[in-house]
């Protein structure tokens, strides 16, 4: 059965750590960095559980700062 795999790239310097993407993610892939901060002091989002991403782009749709790029590939 074909499987969909996805991945996101977060623009770490643009991210403001609002966590709306974390809430919107249906597969609980995303999380905020627990310790690391960007230049402006925000705990930016990252893929905490990368293999579970399905590339649905829910995170990118709700991101107010347009800092998420979504990639999706079909694995046969």
């Amino acid at each position: 059965m074909a499987k969909i795999r996805g991945a996101v790239v977060v623009n770490e310097e643009r991210c403001k750590g609002c966590s709306l993407c974390v809430v919107a993610c249906p597969t609980h892939t995303l999380a905020l960095q627990p310790k690391e901060v960007n230049d402006r002091g925000y705990h930016y989002a990252y893929m905490a559980d990368a293999p579970s991403c399905i590339g649905c782009a829910s995170c990118a749709l709700v991101c107010p700062d347009a800092c998420i790029e979504v990639y999706k590939v079909r694995v046969d």
Partner: peptide, 25 residues
């Protein structure tokens, strides 16, 4: 494989809105 990204008309300036503000969306 890219399916979604920052719109081309939006430039690289960091927005002054508070984190999580609906204006950005």
């Amino acid at each position: 494989n890219k399916v979604y990204g920052k719109p081309v008309l939006m430039n690289d300036n960091n927005m002054h809105y508070c984190p999580g503000c609906s204006h950005g969306v």
